[in-house]
């Protein structure tokens, strides 16, 4: 199993972070700040954040914001950028080598770099800002991604620093990693938000590109040692039958997870594929109906475990 490489720079270590979002109210208890790690070992067909997958900064282009000044076209050393008929800027991704010279030239926000190397102190500075809100709401910091375990050294360093600050921490993970690593992380995390997509190994491999055996083993291990919420993205045509969801609920209850959260599929990721030059998933996924979600919630509840919708 391949781990993400830590980019070795001078100490202090940095990690690739693509967003730090405040007032997150669906990522664990209370009011939280979520730190999004960049880089992920899975390739889920429904991915809502395709810009989070690669472990490196990436150009993102949003032509609707373009003011047609043309500066980027002039500056690009690889002639990757060009105008379409109405003068809006476009890109040939095959020519782009991610030098990001164009981004500095653009004042409209049409060109942006996603992902940035950050040190622990900067992240701490950012998450400290809402400390009062965490205290009053029983909230804290959630580390999400991408996949935080994909940058293990940096993750451990960040968790240690958060512990030192007395922050409540939640780790949102897909659970795809070496068991050894989890044993290091486990004592540093207050709550695991553990994603489970499917119990069936074949289906899991088909839709995420990875085996689920180690994931489920890791979940069993985590749930035995820490507070754990199982999070299930509900993807019509993949895992939205009451049987599939019910089986996950049974498993979650059996291993001692606290609750199951159902996260209905949304189309937020679709537009982003084109913006970063990645191939969108070819199959069409419907957004689940509210009524279907309610019956899935009921299916989980009858299994004797608490269920919440969206977080």
């Amino acid at each position: 199993m391949k781990q993400g490489q830590q980019v070795h720079q001078d100490t202090p270590a940095t990690g690739f972070i693509y967003n730090i979002q405040r007032f997150c109210i669906h990522d664990g208890p209370g009011i939280r700040t979520t730190v999004f790690f960049k880089g992920c070992p899975l390739r889920c067909a429904w991915c809502a954040n395709p810009e989070s997958r690669e472990l490196k900064p990436q150009l993102m282009i949003r032509p609707t914001r373009c003011m047609r000044c043309g500066r980027c076209v002039d500056i690009c050393p690889n002639h990757a950028l060009y105008y379409d008929q109405d003068g809006t800027v476009r890109i040939r991704w095959s020519l782009c080598d991610q030098c990001h010279a164009c981004v500095g030239a653009c004042t409209s926000g049409a060109l942006e770099v996603i992902g940035e190397a950050m040190g622990v102190p900067r992240i701490i500075h950012e998450v400290e800002k809402d400390r009062l809100f965490y205290r009053n709401s029983g909230g804290g910091v959630t580390i999400s991604g991408g996949e935080p375990l994909f940058q293990p050294d940096f993750l451990l360093e960040l968790l240690a620093a958060l512990r030192l600050q007395g922050m409540h921490t939640a780790l949102d993970t897909c659970g795809y990693c070496e068991a050894d690593l989890l044993s290091l992380v486990l004592p540093e995390v207050d709550l695991f938000l553990f994603d489970v997509k499917h119990l069936d190994a074949c289906k899991h491999r088909e839709f995420t590109g990875a085996d689920n055996r180690c994931i489920l083993e890791n979940l069993r291990y985590v749930a035995a040692g820490a507070r754990t919420w199982v999070r299930v993205p509900v993807i019509p045509g993949f895992n939205d039958s009451p049987e599939d969801i019910g089986a996950i609920a049974d498993f979650a209850r059996e291993i001692g997870a606290e609750k199951v959260s159902l996260l209905p599929y949304h189309e937020g990721g679709l537009a982003k594929h084109a913006q970063i030059g990645s191939a969108a998933c070819s199959l069409h996924i419907d957004v689940p109906e509210e009524s279907a979600m309610s019956s899935l919630c009921a299916a989980v509840e009858t299994r004797g475990i608490t269920v919440t919708l969206r977080g």
Binding site: G30, N136, S137
Partner: peptide
């Protein structure tokens, strides 16, 4: 339900600030 408490905490923090 489930979100309201966060709103109350938000309001309390407004007071604290």
């Amino acid at each position: 339900q489930g979100m309201r408490d966060r709103f109350l905490a938000y309001l309390r923090t407004w007071g604290d600030l």
